[in-house]
Amino acid sequence: MKKLISAPYLVWMAVFVVVPLIMVAYFAFFANGHFTLDYVANVSQYANIFIRSIWLAAIATVICLIISYPVAVILTEADANYQGTLLMIVMLPMWMNFLLRTYAWMTILGNNGILNQLFGLFGLGPFKLLNTRGAVVLGMVYNYLPFMLLPIYNVMAKIDRSVLEAAQDLGCNRGRVIAKVVFPLSLPGVMSGITMVFVPAISTFIISRMLGGGGNLLIGDLIEMQFLGNSYNPNLGAAISLVLMIIVLLIMTLMNQFDADDRPLI
């Protein structure tokens, strides 16, 4: 009976997860039916792009965390009747199309954009804001912030209020309650937030293309070029994807290791 119920799910997994993975691996190691390590070896040429992608995605993830955590604390401390409304206000920009949102930043950051016009009023600038790494990080933070905030908020909202009162009862002021109880209990949310921001950020190609100009290519751009661009090379594209996947898996395993350090999280 149980097997029957899970059957559609297993079929779905097989068709849309396992098969594509096998295909990626196949293209990475086989060209014209022959096994080769050339493509995987070639990936090392793009080490600088890998490092840049990891670096920018990591910065964006950290900024998302720094912004989201206090916001989540404030949200959970707010009157229960307003929490929904507050959350909606935070999420509102997400209802706009992803491309549109990113285009908007182009017009804000451009040389003749709103910000530079504003600086111009004070006789400053124009500054080069668009087509910089900073702009790429900004785009990542702006687009992926909710993916950090939501899991943290969800975990935090589920913490039993009486546990926080117990901490107060035992001598903790507000700051210590957060440090000694809220933070350790919210770690699962932080961990999934980090994953949900870092993974799309490291593989994005639209944000870097639109806000980073030509000089700030990320892995996502590189992969896209192998499949759709003029440097058409699906084998190399598959090899890069595979390496990226392994790097992400390694980083996530490392994070979880550090998280599972001394205590079982419930």
């Binding site: 546990v163 009162e165 901490a167 035992l170 001598g171």
Partner: peptide, 29 residues
């Protein structure tokens, strides 16, 4: 405020710290 009162509470549903073991729960205060 509660943390400055010389009062301690055994809460109705215990409210133990789920992330701490028995020793650390008792040692908390």
């Amino acid at each position: 405020p509660p943390h400055k009162r010389n009062v301690n509470t055994v809460f109705q549903r215990y409210a133990l710290f789920p992330h701490l073991n028995v020793y650390d729960n008792i040692a908390f205060g």
